[in-house]
Computed example of a mutant assay.
Amino acid sequence: MPTPLPTAIVGSLPKPSWLAQPEVLWSPWELEGDTLIEGQHDALRAAVQEQELRGIDIVSDGEQTRQHFVTTFIEHLEGVDFDNRETVRIRDRYDASVPTVVGAVSRRKPVFVQDAAFLRAQTDRPIKWALPGPMTMIDTLADRHYRSREKLAWEFATILNQEARELAAAGVDVIQFDEPAFNVFFDELKDWGVAALERAAEGLQAETAVHICYGYGIKANNDWKATLGAEWRQYEESLPLLQRSNIDIVSLESHRSHVPIEVIELIRGKKVMLGAVDVAGAEVETPEEVAETLRRALQYVDADKLIPSSNCGMAPLPRGVAYDKLSALSAGARIVRDELS
């Protein structure tokens, strides 16, 4: 029988200091060559053990084998030049130096499948793997070949589908596509963004999820959030479209955000992965705070469709804080399970 209110994380966990610089987002690796691969798998194994110890039901890799949630996938593709970089506006929020698309993009070999198989071997629990979504991928590049965001997104959707099918074959139970761009580019979202996401998820023998966040707790994102007013209503653009899509799970931010909890009604019938712990601060939630967030959510989503989770990636947090937040998440979920039983 499935676990009621199964807990999960949506993104990264902090890396150990011997692998990458602590509390630094997208830190360079401290190791090289075969030693780096061995170290990444050691860190992945430790992340699994910590998740199980802290009571997480749907286990992930914590992104221990990747430096960046988008570009680590892209750097394995043909047609993208990482030496020829340009500065572009990311999420219409901040400037970043990014690689350039210089030719037809293609996937010459699997990117994460070997790491996913390693994760599968570490646990008997359901496992989840995250991939960047097509719209977010094109927003993290300079395009000098296709010169069409839509055309490049469809190319990436096909590549992502190839990778996702092999991840599912390797034993991944939930494949998550990260689409923070869905909270920014609403015209593209409606015109082709959801359709490209559905192409990436087409025919998968695994549950599919889309994670739409408000970004890591970095200054550029926090400054943007400060302009959004007392209520963050961006989800009202994406959720009605996703409710009609073939995506199984929609992952939302909630706890300590300004997202009105009632927006969940817009995806009635879908599973909801709800952020019940914050990743933008070091204060650890109490189990009762987590439980109260979940109780509020249950006014709008059935209990068998609610997955308590973290808001976004935890990579910039101190490791102890991150794992204590996971303990609070699990404890809060247990409180509400007991109330429902």
Rank of each mutant, 00 (worst) to 15 (best):
V113T: 05
I138P: 02
G203C: 14
N183Y: 04
P134D: 09
S148M: 08
Q114W: 10
T136I: 05
E179F: 07
I212H: 01
A170P: 05
F156A: 07
A116E: 03
S148V: 05
H145R: 12
F185A: 09
Y216T: 13
L152E: 02
G103H: 11
I127M: 02
Q205T: 07
S106G: 13
D143K: 03
I127S: 00
L119R: 06
A121D: 15
K128T: 00
W129S: 00
F156T: 06
E150K: 10
F185Q: 01
A168P: 03
L131A: 07
A164F: 13
H211E: 10
A130I: 03
Q122S: 14
K151W: 12
F186V: 10
D143S: 11
G171L: 11
L197Q: 08
M135A: 10
A153W: 01
G217D: 00
R120P: 13
P134K: 00
G203M: 09
W154H: 15
N183F: 07
L204N: 05
I175M: 06
I212Y: 00
A200F: 02
W129F: 02
C213T: 07
A130D: 03
A181Q: 14
P180D: 08
R147V: 07
F186G: 03
F177E: 03
W154D: 10
D115P: 08
I218W: 13
A142L: 06
M137Y: 02
W129N: 00
Q205I: 14
G103V: 04
I159W: 02
M135S: 09
V105S: 00
A116D: 08
R120K: 15
F156Q: 04
E202H: 15
D191Y: 10
Q176P: 14
Q162E: 12
Q176C: 11
A153N: 05
W154S: 14
T136A: 06
A164P: 13
V102A: 08
V194F: 05
I159N: 00
N161H: 01
E166V: 04
L152P: 04
E198Q: 06
W154M: 14
R125Y: 11
P180G: 05
E150V: 07
L131H: 01
D173F: 00
S106N: 11
M135L: 13
G171C: 10
I138V: 12
E188R: 07
R147M: 09
L119C: 05
A116C: 09
V113G: 06
Y146K: 11
L119P: 01
A142I: 02
V184A: 04
L131F: 04
F118M: 08
V194Y: 04
A196Y: 03
V174G: 06
F112I: 06
M137P: 03
R199P: 11
H145G: 10
L152M: 08
V172F: 12
T208H: 05
D173R: 04
Q162G: 12
E202C: 14
K109Y: 14
A104E: 15
A206V: 03
Q162C: 06
L141A: 08
H211S: 06
L204A: 10
F185K: 05
M137C: 07
A104Y: 13
P126L: 09
F177V: 09
P126H: 02
G217S: 01
T123H: 10
W129I: 00
A117S: 15
L167K: 01
T140M: 15
Q114H: 10
V174H: 04
V210G: 01
E163I: 12
D139A: 15
S148Q: 12
A142K: 08
S148L: 09
H211G: 06
L197E: 07
V172K: 09
Q176Y: 13
Q114A: 15
A169V: 01
